[in-house]
Design a protein around this nucleic acid. Structure first.
Length: 465
RNA sequence: GACCCCUUCGUCUAUCGGUUAGGACACCUGGUUUUCAUCCAGGAAAGAGGAGUUCGAUUCUCCUAGGGGUCGCCA
């Protein structure tokens, strides 16, 4: 295919989900491989009750944040209702659709029989199409599509391969509701056709919809696009990724301090991998050249936050991404305060601790220790005699350091240890505790550098032998 | 329940009939280190089960089991 016209068509009934983001990502990657290709964005808001402007904005900004750009202005599906109805009318006139007045009870009754296996055909309305009275009604009806029952339909899916379904399995679904509004099933086909979409990449929860939607294309004599139904992402328990699996909305990951690069790297490795020997750390421009949708696995994969953490740690450690940390700090209430107070200090903390964290959010608690001007040691630790003996001398040593530089402090401490014939932990551990309330952490020289001379001495000085 | 899809280390995956079944994350061990970490080196860890096709099956076919998806006047 030389010109790939794709689309991402979310419904604005919730924030941008990791799974949807992956679908958008794969669409973006595929279209980016070919010149003159397009990725359109369409907001499918035909469910008026659940659609919200707020969600639409969240989706747009989430995609932008990830670096997934679309062509043209986002299309709003509800703006095309008249066009959708025009097609419904054509189908009706051509005898490819019919008016139906079945009551909810009748439908439920029939559905029960279908589900229990008493009836083999999925067609839910059997009488209205033949009823001329119903067909001449002016209002108060739904429009259903006509689907034959003979033989079977075959889909050659780019990802799923050949899929066969008997026509008897395909239902006479609703195109236009009783209130005169078009359903998703109608709108999606009309809009895709009008946009010239020729390659549809969507979640495989839509696989069955192909067999329903293809009839509109056929009846209208429209060219049927190529389909790629990609497997869904699952949570740790193997079911469709959802809220109970943790943060599944992009906005939540952003708030926690995950990087777009890490999320993209993580997502693309679900169901796909680079060729043998190639690095799994891989960025968008390389993914675009290496990725091929034909290689995508058919089976669903489980989303792992641990692996995301690995990638995020990798990317946030990179010098070039320091700016992202600063931007993040501006958007985080706690870090914002520290940034205003002493940007240099916050950056120093970040640079020393970045190897230990998997997301920016973790810096909040760390920074709190260093920015707390009323710092108190948590408990009255009793240190070893050896430490107590040399404590005052050590304090004096630190007091006498004039050039508060890493190398200077470092060599002063080393000399001190040598002179007093001490092993590092004797001094280091208690001092680290006095400075940070923690026996583990960065080298005490690093801690001294973060705190500065005055605050460092203030903290150590509180200890009385 | 019906229909469709899936099934290689705990997780993500490689393998396009012949491999000591490879890698990554996580985990464990050792080394370096100013503690914890980082870093480096090593380790444990997999073809759901059963038939067939074949000289030979993880790979092809079928059955079973397990998992997932769909079954709305939602999208």
């Amino acid at each position: 295919m030389t010109k790939m016209i794709t689309r991402f068509a979310p419904s604005p009934t919730g924030n941008l989900h990791i799974g949807s983001a992956r679908t958008a990502l794969i669409n973006y990657i595929c279209k980016s491989k070919y010149n003159d290709s397009k990725l359109y964005l369409r907001i499918e808001d035909t469910d008026k009750d659940r659609s919200k402007e707020e969600f639409k904005n969240n989706i747009l900004s989430g995609l932008k944040w990830l670096g997934i750009n679309w062509d043209n202005e986002p299309q709003i599906q509800s703006h095309n209702i008249n066009r959708h109805l025009e097609i419904a009318n054509k189908l009706l006139v051509n005898g490819n659709a019919f008016k139906c007045v079945c009551s909810e009870e009748e439908l439920n009754e029939r559905r029960k029989k279908i589900n229990s296996g008493d009836i083999t055909s999925k067609k839910i309305c059997i009488s209205c199409a033949k009823n001329t009275e119903v067909q001449s009604l002016e209002k108060n009806y739904v429009i259903r599509i006509k689907i034959p029952i003979d033989n079977k339909e075959i889909l050659e899916d780019v990802v799923q391969g050949t899929v066969e379904v008997n026509k008897s399995e395909i239902d006479d679904y609703v195109l236009v509701r009783r209130d005169g509004t078009p359903t998703y099933m109608l709108s999606v086909v009309v809009d895709d056709h009008d946009l010239g979409v020729n390659f549809i990449i969507r979640g495989d929860d839509h696989l069955n919809n192909y067999f329903r939607q293809k009839f509109i294309y056929e009846y209208m004599n429209w060219e049927i696009p190529t389909y790629a139904h990609i497997p869904l992402i699952h949570g740790e328990d193997g079911s469709k990724l959802s809220k109970r699996h943790g943060a599944v909305n992009l906005i939540d990951l952003k708030k926690q301090g995950y990087l777009p690069e890490a999320i993209i790297n993580n997502l693309i490795l679900l169901g796909w991998s680079p060729k043998k020997g190639d690095d799994e750390i891989i960025q968008l421009n390389n993914i675009i050249s290496m990725f091929n949708i034909n290689d995508l696995s058919k089976s669903a994969s489980i989303f792992s936050y641990k692996k995301l953490d690995f990638f995020n740690n990798y990317y946030l450690r990179q010098e070039k991404n320091l700016e992202l940390f600063i931007n993040y700090s501006k958007s985080n209430i706690n870090l914002q305060k520290y940034l205003d107070k002493d940007e240099e200090k916050l950056i120093r903390i970040f640079n020393i601790y970045k190897k230990d964290i998997s997301k920016y959010e973790e810096i909040v608690n760390i920074a709190e220790i260093y920015f707390n001007s009323n710092f108190e040691v948590l408990k009255n630790e009793i240190f070893e005699q050896e430490f107590n003996k040399c404590f005052n001398n050590f304090l004096e040593l630190i007091n006498n350091i004039k050039d508060w530089e890493y190398d200077v402090i470092n060599s002063e401490i080393k000399d001190f240890l040598k002179k007093n014939n001490l092993k590092f932990p004797i001094i280091g551990k208690p001092v680290r505790f006095l400075l940070t309330n923690n026996y583990n952490g960065p080298s005490i020289t690093d801690i001294f550098m973060i705190l500065g001379k005055v605050e460092s001495i203030k903290r150590i000085n509180k200890y009385k032998v």
